[in-house]
């Protein structure tokens, strides 16, 4: 449905962010995210940063399973 790619924000200007995914860079819309700074990570879909990402999947999945399984 929606191919998403995590990418690092290089710079932000006028609602447009330059993002970097392991060396591939492209300008994407930053309009959907209120506060965005260089160094933040975002999820990019079809040229739009759709969400700021807060953690990596490793930590998060461990925490989720800890919560579900006693």
């Amino acid at each position: 449905m929606c191919v998403g790619l995590p990418a690092r924000v290089v710079n932000v200007k006028d609602g447009v962010a330059l993002v970097d995914a392991s060396g591939a860079q492209r300008e994407v819309s930053a309009e959907l995210i209120e506060e965005l700074d260089p160094g933040d990570y975002v999820m990019v879909h079809a040229g739009v940063a759709i969400a700021k990402i807060t953690a990596d999947d490793e930590e998060e999945t461990d925490a989720l399973l800890d919560a579900v399984i006693d």
Partner: peptide, 14 residues
């Protein structure tokens, strides 16, 4: 199970 990307309210701007 995807809180690093998905918040409860989602993207207000979106």
């Amino acid at each position: 199970c995807y809180p690093r990307v998905v918040t409860d309210e989602g993207s207000t701007a979106g």
